[in-house]
Computed example of a mutant assay.
Amino acid sequence: MAKKKSISQSDLIGFYMDYVLMHDHKPKSVYAFAKDNNFDESKFYEFFGSFDVLEQSIFKVFFDNTHTALDKSEEYQSFDARNKLLSFYYTFFENLTANRSYVVHALDSHKNSMKSLKLLSHLKKSFTNYIEQLGIKTIDLNQEQLTKIQNRSLKESAWFQLLVTMKFWLDDTSPSFEKTDIFIEKSVQASFDLIDVTPLKSIVDFGKFLFKEKVQMT
């Protein structure tokens, strides 16, 4: 059988995810992976230097697919920062749910230590850049160094919030992951209320929800 001449990054990611789910481990070598999927080994290296880099790219693809879908929506373009972030969350977790078997396989054993997980490094970079571009209004500190610290803290806290939500989703057994939808709504609302220094009703409401669900993140 002639080897496939046209191989895309998306093809390689699809082959890899299928292999991992069918065999419960990564391929033994790029050579074996290429042979199993009938393409030249050199094609792999046109896109990825290793399986580790490919794995990191998978979660960035989930982000890219989310961002592309939102950019096509005229309604999304008219939203304020709060509703844009809500839309991002709902769409991103739809992408995760469509690939839940792989995501659970990749993250389940690390769900209590995702903050430093190299597997998510490309996702973190893309997501924190997205947060920076949202134009979230914060307190005007009138001091450049303090403003930089505030912006860095905002991005790190937003990233931590996404990780907490991913952990909640991994543990969620409710129909259609409806509890995750509630978690997203309440957590985004509470985080913006904290930034805006507004009444604490939604924050207390979110706290009650967390206590009820016994969420833990270390």
Rank of each mutant, 00 (worst) to 15 (best):
M1H: 08
A2D: 08
K5G: 12
K5Y: 11
I7R: 04
S8G: 01
S10V: 12
L12S: 05
I13R: 10
G14W: 02
G14T: 15
F15R: 05
D18C: 08
D18W: 05
Y19H: 15
V20K: 01
V20W: 01
L21C: 03
L21I: 10
H23W: 05
V30F: 02
V30N: 03
Y31R: 14
A32V: 13
A32P: 01
A32G: 03
F33L: 07
A34N: 04
A34M: 04
A34G: 11
K35L: 09
K35N: 13
N37H: 13
D40E: 15
D40V: 11
E41Q: 15
S42Y: 13
S42P: 07
K43C: 09
K43H: 13
F47T: 03
F47K: 06
G49Q: 09
G49I: 07
G49A: 06
F51Y: 02
V53H: 14
L54V: 03
L54K: 04
E55S: 10
S57C: 09
F59K: 03
F59E: 02
F59D: 03
K60I: 03
F62S: 11
F62M: 15
F63T: 01
T66W: 01
T66L: 02
T66K: 02
Y76E: 08
Y76I: 08
Q77Y: 02
S78W: 01
S78E: 11
D80H: 08
A81Q: 07
N83V: 03
K84Q: 08
L85T: 10
L86Y: 08
F88H: 04
Y89N: 10
T91M: 08
F92S: 07
F93G: 01
L96E: 06
T97N: 15
A98D: 15
Y102C: 07
Y102D: 07
V104I: 15
A106T: 04
L107N: 13
S109A: 15
K111V: 07
N112D: 15
M114H: 07
S116Y: 12
L117P: 00
H122K: 15
L123Q: 08
K125Q: 14
K125A: 14
K125H: 13
S126E: 12
F127P: 02
I131F: 05
Q133M: 12
K137I: 13
T138C: 12
I139W: 05
I139Q: 15
L141Q: 12
N142E: 14
E144S: 11
E144P: 00
L146G: 06
L146S: 10
T147R: 11
I149N: 07
Q150V: 06
Q150Y: 04
N151W: 00
E156C: 01
S157P: 02
S157K: 14
A158Y: 08
W159C: 06
F160K: 09
K167S: 06
D171A: 08
T173V: 07
P175K: 11
S176P: 00
D181W: 07
F183T: 01
F183M: 10
K186M: 11
S187Q: 05
V188Q: 04
Q189W: 00
F192L: 01
F192C: 02
D193I: 00
T198V: 10
P199W: 00
P199D: 13
P199S: 10
L200C: 00
K201R: 06
K201G: 09
S202F: 00
V204F: 08
D205L: 00
D205M: 00
F206W: 10
F206S: 03
G207M: 06
K208D: 10
F209E: 05
F211R: 09
E213Q: 15
E213G: 06
V215L: 14
T218E: 13
